[in-house]
Design a binder for these strands. Structure first.
Length: 327
DNA sequence: CGCGTTTGACCAGCGC
DNA sequence: GCGCTGGTCAAACGCG
């Protein structure tokens, strides 16, 4: 599906992804988080189990994020952000690079792959440019053609209620583009991880249906630790955390793996402006009080954010079915 | 000076 | 083939 067609889907249909995924709602002091995990069907059973684990009442929100319940796969990790209102929708996309599903892939999934593969071409050809690499020029960009379809990077999208567009996640990002989005008054911003040889990208845009909501889509996996010692926001964010929280806590891999994110590890979520703007202390989410969890089947439509537009852009067809209501 | 942002231009893919 | 749209590039610029 073309981007346009995708947008048409986004904005004209009322497809509700929550009908197809497993939903987990979390209530915590400042709001509610709704997570939707969309996983490869070939591993659906284990992932379902993992999500079930997340639904256990004894798990804190941070633990939910941490995915510390044993067999939870790194690909199924989620990063949450929040502000004082802390309402987060999460949709996770597992790409074929991590797992090649046997099941049929919907058009939306296929197109998401094409989109990212297009980006991959640039990654390979141009990735070194802005980081001071050789002088590969525009011509080079043209060399890669359609035949070289690259594996799709894992995509991961979530929605956050926030006044700030660009949410701090501990990594350093360089903005490389901004585009007006069809049917939306709000532009979409494109960021790349500034770490050398890290190809992770993310897109950030504000929901036009709910301007208080920011939609963030990550693509790819970090191949490095959270740059906690670099100047800028990471270092500044580190100042807000207890000393031990800024230590790298896991090997580099997954860009969105909360294991690797000190903010998440601490259950804190920094919401900042641009990458050059230190996060605001008041925007931190304090997880310590009465973080509670709800059963996995228990979700409230009124808590859901109205716009799943961008999310659909990365929706694969291989999804888990929602747990049946038991009450 | 290094790094990040801005922004117009360019390209690919798609539908018509 | 043309137009539209999303995604990316890269020069110019800003900031600390």
């Amino acid at each position: 599906m073309s981007d346009e067609a995708r947008d048409d889907l986004l904005y004209t249909h009322h497809h509700h992804p929550f009908h197809e995924g497993i939903n987990v709602n979390y209530s915590f002091p400042t709001g509610t988080a709704t997570a939707v995990s969309i996983v490869d069907s070939s591993s659906s059973s284990s992932s379902a189990q993992n999500l079930q684990n997340f639904g256990l009442p004894h798990l804190s929100f941070a633990e939910f994020l941490h995915g510390s319940s044993g067999n939870y796969d790194a690909r199924s990790s989620a990063v949450f952000f929040g502000d004082n209102q802390a309402s987060v929708d999460v949709k996770e996309i597992v790409g074929e690079s991590a797992h090649t599903p046997n099941c049929s892939v919907s058009s939306s999934s296929t197109e998401a792959e094409e989109d990212s593969s297009k980006g991959e071409k640039d990654k390979q050809n141009k990735g070194s440019e802005y980081r001071g690499g050789e002088d590969s020029k525009k011509v080079n960009k043209m060399l890669k053609k359609k035949g070289e379809k690259k594996q799709r990077e894992p995509k991961f999208a979530f929605m956050t209620r926030s006044e700030v567009d660009h949410l701090e996640d501990g990594y350093r990002w360089r903005k490389y583009g901004q585009k007006a989005v069809k049917n939306s008054p709000y532009p979409r911003s494109y960021y790349r991880c500034t770490t050398q040889k890290c190809t992770v990208k993310k897109r950030v845009e504000r929901s036009f249906q709910d301007p208080s909501t920011v939609i963030t889509t990550y693509e790819g996996q970090h191949n490095h630790h959270v740059p906690v010692t670099v100047r800028g926001q990471a270092a500044a964010a580190g100042l807000m955390l207890p000393p031990d929280s800024v230590l790298p806590i896991a090997p580099p891999h997954v860009g969105l793996n909360p294991h690797h994110n000190p903010f998440i590890h601490m259950g804190q979520f920094a919401v900042g402006g641009s990458s050059s703007t230190p996060p605001v202390a008041s925007a931190l989410y304090d997880p310590t009080p009465t973080t509670t969890t709800l059963p996995i089947h228990h979700y409230h439509h009124h808590q859901l954010l109205p716009d799943y537009g961008l999310l659909q852009d990365v929706v694969p067809s291989f999804v888990l079915r929602q747990e049946p209501h038991s009450q």
